[in-house]
Amino acid sequence: MFELSQRGPRILFGLTTVLVGLFLFAPIYWLLISAFKGNSELYRIIPTLWPGEPTLTHFSTAFTRGNLLVNLKNSLIVSGGSAALNMALAAYAGYALAKFRFAGRRMLMIVLLSAQATPFGLLLITIYPSLVAFDLLDTHLGLILASIVFALPVSTYMMFSYFSQVPGELIDAARADGASELRIFHTIVLPISIPALVTVFLYAFMWSWNDLLYSMTLIVSEEKRTIGPGLLLNYLNETNADWGGAMAASLVASLPILIAFAIVQRSFIQGVTAGAVK
């Protein structure tokens, strides 16, 4: 680590860091304090920066009104399924791109990454009729399959970067020991790639968990609805806007991601930076 001793750069870097921190943290702080404010305080013209009389009313209504728990369960199924599928596909594709030489490999990499630049709304135009054709519309499986488009290109690239760092001699040693290519991948490479796999899983899970467009469009039954549309339709519809309830329910909805991130943040950081330095 370096000691930043020069005054000018210290102010510039310090100020930028504080501003970025504020920009990212302010909405979370607002969500947090609003969830604990009573309605009278919540709708004041001059807002307070700390709940005057903290209350848990919104949390009790969040769990009694609407289908918060059902929405959460559905989201866990869809995001967990999508993240697992995304991780598996990214791992196989990333390994192939990193460790095998075949015609069109570079072109495939470019196409793969350019897919991430395509607007997700545009992809929905082709995904929707495909799901209809396979009778997967309004099903969790349909939404799981559709959701992998969010994270798969970047996930594949992340796995590619990680696998590129796996020493060739390790794979050669397993080949010399008599392992098949698939066995090498499953018994040697995957067990030492857990930080990267966790990173990719979490990355895809967050994309899917935070999605609104696909889950609104591809799920119509209330009992299959995920957390994003659930929050929106329960608390912020055309006739009603329960901000307190929305904030409390949003806080509850954010918890799984926050907890998961807190648990695996060390390997997440390792995974994101893998390949950056030797």
Partner: peptide, 28 residues
């Protein structure tokens, strides 16, 4: 390679990092 009756020792040792010494030795 495995059917040639040959064993190779690599420059970087190439030990399987997630396996114990015994598992490394018994893998083949």
């Amino acid at each position: 390679p495995a059917k040639r009756g040959i064993a190779m020792v690599f420059q970087s040792y190439a030990l399987y990092p997630h396996m114990s010494v015994a598992s490394n030795m018994g893998y083949a």
